[in-house]
Simulated assay, not measured.
Amino acid sequence: MNGIVAAFAATGLYYVGFAIFKLAADRMEPVRANRLPHMVWVILTNWIFLAGLALVLGGLGLQILALTKLSLGIAVPIFMSGVLPLLVIAMIFFGDRLTPREWLSLALIGTAVGLLTLSVGRPPPIEAVDVPTWKMAVVVVPAIVVPLLINMFGDHRPDGRHARPVTGIAYGLSSGFPVGTAELAIKGWSDSSSQGLGVLSTPYPYVTVAAAALGFGIMVAGFQRCRVSIVAAVMTVAAKSYLLVMGAFMYAEPWPSDTSHFAMRMGALALAALAVAQFPRHRPLGEGPVPAPEAVPPVQDVFGSRIPRPRAPLAPLAEPPLAAPHPPPQTPTPTPYRGDPLGRGPYGHYDSGNPTENDQR
């Protein structure tokens, strides 16, 4: 199979699989990385997720085939292009709606993909490279350990009645770097001189499985809480940028030597970083809390009813208290001070010039 065809086919399988991950995320109980065994059990026992995983594994096989024939400079723009059909799927099937600022970020991502494509130039031939252990450790360990610790010790969406829902940037970054690490291992897998089962003696299959499992788990948690278009777009930018930059470091794949192609590649990476940086971190205040998805009747939903997510519902408006009835007016009781405009009381008061009994004393 042609390498470019294999790359496009791998990308298509990947993002259709990610869309199925979203269907699975809406139909499983909430998962959190600080409850890792529970998270693994819930995800791996969901048959919808396993169906999506089968497609993603098919894309994995095609990606290995593509990277045996293509350099990273050619393959990465093809892999990044898959976010566009996923965006269409998210809007049509999942009802995602974006703000103008989010549309601007996606436009910057599209421009970055175009610049990456133009920066290819004349890539060098593919050569197998033996990666030293220290290089692999420098690239792999931070990309796996840091997202795992972030998700285990703090959730990205604060709970509470008045908490503002997040857009999913943190989930996209936390899943993108492990996925990019898995693709780096796939690149080493495709370049390895070991054939057949001999590749099991290399670290590439094990790094691929561990990094992909972590990235997919965080992705499912993000799909439960945020819009798939935002999580998937940020994940794609983070994963492919990490693949391109660290791939040159690990596998000694040179970048364009002429000034124009080098500038376009640097400009593409800068635009991708700017797109992620200017994504809003929270949903607009005017939108209010995100409503929980309505359960779809089993007759209409072949995948089973979705589990409503615990959101921050608006407090019901309290009925205004009824005003207490005004008591009827009462006639004041006559007192000795009635008719005393100065309020001096009976002492020292003269009536018609005659002193009172107390004054006579």
Rank of each mutant, 00 (worst) to 15 (best):
A19E: 02
A323H: 03
A263I: 11
L44R: 00
R227N: 11
P125E: 06
S194H: 14
P313R: 11
F279Q: 15
A263E: 10
Q300Y: 13
T133Q: 01
V40A: 13
G267S: 05
L285K: 15
V207S: 01
V40W: 02
T167Q: 10
R311Y: 05
Y204R: 05
T11K: 02
A112Y: 02
S257P: 05
R164Q: 15
A75I: 03
L87Y: 11
L317K: 11
S305D: 09
F262N: 03
V296T: 14
L148Y: 15
A9E: 01
G180Q: 11
V276P: 03
M250K: 11
E102Y: 09
A210D: 00
L104Q: 03
Q224T: 00
H38R: 13
V129F: 08
N46Y: 02
F153H: 14
L115R: 01
A9H: 02
P100Y: 12
A90I: 00
V245E: 00
G215P: 05
V140Q: 04
V146K: 10
P203K: 04
V146I: 15
P125V: 00
G304R: 00
P254T: 12
L60I: 10
G59L: 09
A128M: 03
G345S: 07
A210P: 02
R281W: 06
A143V: 06
V179C: 09
P321E: 10
V146D: 06
W103T: 06
D351F: 12
I230S: 02
L342D: 13
V231P: 07
P355L: 10
P328G: 07
V76E: 10
A277N: 06
P123F: 02
V40R: 03
